[in-house]
């Protein structure tokens, strides 16, 4: 029974997921369905539970109720098909190690217990670093990298996992414009190759240009679906409450569909 597929046509299926700290709900009765091949933004105000959502899906924090299926199976059976990029601030960048070594850590899951990374793993990690234009920094100690470079190393570590579903927690927070564009382009390429990308995002301004799927979160799911349908003033107001007045003054659309995404027509590498 455990092996029977449940909602196999969905990249991510979350049902009734509830998480709480100290009797205070952080996530309440989350139902979420993501088709494969989308690049989805998870957006919401501070304390909306965006990071907790990813952590609960990956079973990094306990949930009180609900279940999660990734490509039809529980996460435990799908570890190899899932890539995860935690927030950059979640690790100590003073740790004595190199960029190449951090990327190689992405392959530890495939290696399993006890097997050591060898030349093949180092070569794969090097290729991933080339993909994010960081090959020249492979042997740098990680504290000597800028915030944007550190984020690229983290992205390379996810790329090397060759996953089908990627979870990224604030990959564009505190990075320079070049890195942000680079990250968006790489994620776009992954999406075009049929992968599913789920990004916790902080910047409402760029949601429409970067993403094609949107999950509005505030403890519960406020709205979900294609960006063109979900990104409306009414939905944002429901997710953000009072803070939305500020947003509407900033060129927010009325409740009408958005024009086609210019980012999707872009090809080629920005590096």
């Amino acid at each position: 029974m455990a092996d029977a597929l449940h909602e196999p046509q969905l990249a991510l299926h979350v049902e009734d997921l509830t998480v709480s700290y100290q009797n205070k709900p952080v996530l309440w009765d989350i139902d979420l369905d993501l088709p494969p091949g989308v690049m989805a933004a998870v957006v919401g105000p501070n304390g909306a539970g965006k990071t907790s959502l990813i952590k609960a899906i990956l079973e990094l924090i306990p949930s009180l109720a609900g279940h999660v299926r990734i490509l039809g199976k529980p996460y435990r059976q799908q570890r190899g098909r899932v890539g995860y990029v935690p927030q950059r601030s979640a690790v100590d960048w003073e740790f004595p190690t190199t960029a190449l070594d951090v990327v190689t850590m992405g392959l530890y899951g495939r290696l399993g217990w006890l097997r050591r990374p060898g030349r093949r793993e180092r070569e794969e990690a090097m290729q991933a670093l080339e993909q994010v234009a960081m090959a020249d920094f492979a042997h740098r100690q990680i504290s000597q990298l800028s915030g944007g470079q550190q984020q690229r190393v983290f992205l390379a570590r996810a790329l090397v996992q060759q996953a089908e579903v990627y979870f990224l927690d604030e990959p564009m927070a505190g990075v320079d414009a070049t890195t942000e564009r680079a990250i968006v382009n790489i994620l776009g390429e992954l999406r075009d190759a049929g992968k599913t990308i789920i990004v916790v995002h902080h910047d409402l301004q760029t949601v429409r240009t970067y993403f094609d799927w949107l999950v509005l979160l505030n403890v519960g799911v406020v709205a979900q679906g294609p960006v063109s349908e979900v990104y409306t003033a009414a939905n944002l107001r429901r997710a953000y409450g009072g803070q939305v007045a500020l947003l509407e003054g900033n060129g927010m659309p009325a409740d009408k569909p958005t024009p086609p995404d210019p980012q999707r027509d872009q090809t080629g590498d920005v590096f």
Binding site: R79, Y84, D92, V102, M105, Y108, R116
Partner: peptide, 22 residues
């Protein structure tokens, strides 16, 4: 010596270590 790789990952990034099943 035996758990060097696992100890390194768990010390540097415990969340990824957990996500990968270590």
């Amino acid at each position: 010596g035996v758990f060097y790789k696992e100890l390194k990952l768990a010390t540097f990034d415990p969340m990824l270590a957990r996500a990968l099943g270590f």
